[in-house]
Write a protein that binds this DNA or RNA. Structure first.
Lengths: 229, 229
DNA sequence: TTATTTTTATGTTTTACAGCACAAAGGTAC
DNA sequence: GTACCTTTGTGCTGTAAAACATAAAAATAA
């Protein structure tokens, strides 16, 4: 219970919306657990019963499409809520979620959240803002992924990861370590082409690679490649 | 003013959220005007000052991408709100909107809406649901447009228009009359390929074309083509 | 009406990228 | 340790769809 109190303290938007009674209830109904690397959190078709909150770690939200291909549509960083969209629109999940790396995730019954939102306009506004931002990003992504050429899409993905997860202390190495396949699934291309194009980026002095570590050397050039398509 | 009263009566989610005082204010600050066919409603980069409501007509929301290509990301049918996403996430518009056909559109200051949402949780919940549905569709669209082949994408677009605008009295002709270029911009392909692929659909007995009228003859087959990619 | 622009239609060429195939390197299990 | 599987890397081939080129038809303007 001590642990849960700490978790709740990290969720100010939610915590501040609670009466003492509700707070008790949230603490009672909330569960916290560790997901291992690559572990599934939920899958397309599942009934969304809980809102999730990533306390620590990194999570990818993706869709499996035609011909075994996968598209990562969003990534989640700590501390962020996720898994509530489907519940809010009364659908089953249309995406799947998995941990990029070991992740601690809190689950709160969605019915409880719904009740809170219907009583607390500030909390409602919080979710409106989150959804509005996500929708804008999704629309931008649709166009980027469909219209840009392979180099543009890969550059966009590298910058997307930088925006989402930031950099290490050196100020240029991405703070996330995706496989080449992850890069391909972010960028709407085959793994081969992700590998190939990353290599040419290295040759051109835009990035360096050390296993799965990606270090950005020339961000301006990447921006340009991403923008030009 | 009579006209505005009628318009407000068509917006139950909003109307019921208003106190008499606010109702007066909305009627006072709301403007209603007719947009001609293909007229711009707002453009990428504009500052969103009003929430819009399509009273009658049809509207397309689109993004201009690289190389002069355009992607229609959403379509709006009467009576539906639009143009609020950017305002809710404190951004300028990242999309543009134009009328598919002559359209009557009401504008309500977004600040007024924001105040109402912050006081009325039901209204907040209404927008949460709308945004959640839109985000789910946008994600599905991203994957459909990137992974499917040209026939699958075009079939998807035809079905998308059917879902969005429905059919005429005959039960099979789409109730919207997009140019071939519109079809291409919906389906992420060139106009030439939209024309070509529509023709093959006619040859295969899936649809008939009469100018811009699209009549669906074999919806099950279109569903299959859309699903298979 | 006639003129002019826009839209539709089709054929040809080019190319970006997927789809293999295969090998080396790196992890993981036993 | 050895065996096995996954990930990374590179070359080759085929093809889906863009790009280009005209031309006819339709819509719009004069």
């Amino acid at each position: 219970m001590k642990r849960k109190e700490e978790v709740l303290a990290k969720l100010p938007d939610l915590d501040s919306a609670l009466t003492p009674d509700e707070r008790e209830q949230v603490l009672d109904e909330m569960t916290v657990r560790l997901y291992r690397k690559n572990e599934f959190i939920y899958s397309e078709g599942d009934v969304p019963s809980h809102m999730l909150c990533l306390i620590s770690g990194k999570v990818k939200i993706y869709k499996d499409g035609v011909g075994g291909r996968t598209q990562i549509v969003r990534v989640v960083n700590a501390v962020e809520y996720f898994g509530y969209r489907a519940a809010f629109s009364d659908e089953n999940y249309v995406t799947s979620a998995a941990a990029f790396e070991p992740s601690v995730i809190a689950s709160i019954p969605i019915n409880l959240i719904r009740r809170l939102v219907l009583r607390n306009p500030q909390l409602g506004w919080f979710f409106i803002r989150r959804l509005a931002v996500a929708l804008g990003k999704s629309d931008a992504r649709t166009v980027g992924l469909t219209q840009k050429h392979i180099r543009g899409r890969l550059a966009e993905s590298i910058l997307f990861l930088k925006e989402s997860y930031g950099k290490e202390e050196d100020g240029q190495t991405l703070n996330v370590y995706p496989t080449r396949e992850d890069m391909a699934n972010l960028s709407n291309m085959t793994t081969s082409n992700a590998i190939r194009t990353l290599s040419t980026f290295v040759q051109e002095g835009l990035i360096t690679l050390d296993g799965r570590k990606i270090t950005i050397l020339d961000e301006a050039a990447l921006q340009k490649i991403s923008k030009m398509g």
